[in-house]
Each structure stands twice: as structure tokens, then as C-alpha cells.
Simulated scan of single mutants.
Amino acid sequence: MADTHTAENQTAGVSEQDVRHVANLANLELTDQELPRMVRDLNSILNYIAELNQLDTAAVAPMAQVGEMLGLTPDGAGNTLRPDVVRPSVDRAAVMAAAPETDGRFFKVPKVIER
């Protein structure tokens, strides 16, 4: 993606070539009408992010978990979060035995993406 530098901020511009490349990687087929609209929309998003990056957040406390703000802690004090405890998982051999097709270690599935 091409970079455009200004005195106030730095914004990245998305070209039609960039969108075609990403669409190809994602196996998406964009029509000739969708391509310019996608370029415009992605550039609009990047410009908005550049605006947000200019905000002074020095006085804003960092948030690790939104649940902490709501008083939801896994300490059993009447909250809705369950405690994070290690529990046994399902038996791998039993799961593989019930699978329609397996090599004993992995599930075998039909190929779905053709390239």
C-alpha cells in the first residue's frame, strides 16, 4: 500500500491494485463496480483511524478487560463469570474412533478450495 505523508498525520492509501491483490488472497471475486467502492471504503476507514490516532489519550487509563469496569471478576463474589480452572478435555482416541474418516491423528475432510 502506498504511503502518503503530510505534516499533520500519516495515512496509508489503498490502491485498486492493493484491493485486487487482497481479494485474490481471500479468494473473493469483485466486480468492476465493487472495486472502486471497496477502494473508497477502505481509504475512508484508514483516514478515520488516522484521525483517532491524533487523539490525546495520555490521561485515559488503559483497559485490559471491560468486565473489570462492570465489577465482573472471577472471585465468586456474586459475579457472572466462571472461574478459570483446568479441566480434562475429551478423550482423543474416542473422538477419532467416532470420526467418519481419520488417519488416527487427524480428521480427513474433503478439499474445499481449488487453486
Rank of each mutant, 00 (worst) to 15 (best):
N43Y: 02
K111L: 02
L81A: 13
V90L: 12
R20C: 05
L25S: 11
A61V: 02
A50M: 03
A61L: 06
P100W: 04
N79F: 05
Q65L: 11
Q54W: 00
D18P: 01
L81H: 08
R40A: 15
E29G: 08
P110H: 05
T31E: 05
K108E: 11
D3R: 07
L25E: 15
A61G: 01
D56C: 02
V14C: 10
L30K: 03
A97H: 03
S44N: 12
T73P: 01
G13W: 09
G71F: 05
F107W: 07
V86F: 13
V14H: 04
T4Q: 12
G13A: 09
R87K: 14
D91T: 10
I45Y: 14
V112N: 09
Y48G: 02
Q65C: 03
R105Q: 13
L55C: 06
L55A: 13
A64G: 15
D3T: 08
A59V: 04
L81W: 08
R87D: 06
V95I: 10
M1N: 07
A93R: 02
A26I: 01
V90G: 13
L28I: 08
R92L: 09
P62S: 06
P110F: 01
A94T: 10
L55H: 11
A94Y: 02
E34L: 01
R92M: 06
N27F: 07
G78V: 08
L55S: 08
A77K: 15
Q54Y: 01
H5K: 09
V39T: 08
M1W: 07
R92D: 10
G76T: 05
A98E: 13
L70E: 14
A58I: 00
P100L: 03
E51R: 12
E114G: 04
I113R: 14
T80S: 12
